[in-house]
Amino acid sequence: MNLTASGLLFFAFAVLTLGAGTAVALVREPVRAALVGALCFVGVGLLYLWLGAEFLGFIQWLVYVGAVAVLIVFVILLTRREDAGGETEGGRFAGLRVLGGLGVALALFGALAAAVLGSGSLYREVPEEPMVLEIAALGRELVAGAVPPLILVGVVLTVALVGGVTLALVERKPDA
């Protein structure tokens, strides 16, 4: 296997993503964990960009880094306790907890690995020309094949939005 600049970039992005992901689980302070979580999302976006999927990559940044992760950080900042952190040291079932965590992690990894190996995409020929992802093609794919789930997700999001606005609306009674 010959390492090209492109291959090196891939490894850099992969190490960044995996490293940040591991750090999320290992860092003790919630705010730091959320921040490295954002870094992990950045890494995933970089991997999309490396694959030539610009649209997906920037959507990943816009939605996950720019909105979801900000929301998580924001909520943690608002609800933080000064005395939090450090309390999980030791404890009665420390060994059991570690085992449980490892078990869940292994099961998840197994499921993901099975899905990737089962899809057969590992053995597909790599096209010579970089694939150009047209936004229109992406939209057609989404609208043609996946209309019911798309509408469902849309309805759920709209309900969430309306709920949020309603919560904001009822907070105050008329003043005078």
Partner: peptide, 12 residues
């Protein structure tokens, strides 16, 4: 889209 994605990082 690039502009929206990158400028949304500014909040960090």
């Amino acid at each position: 889209l690039f502009i929206f994605a990158i400028s949304s990082l500014g909040v960090y």
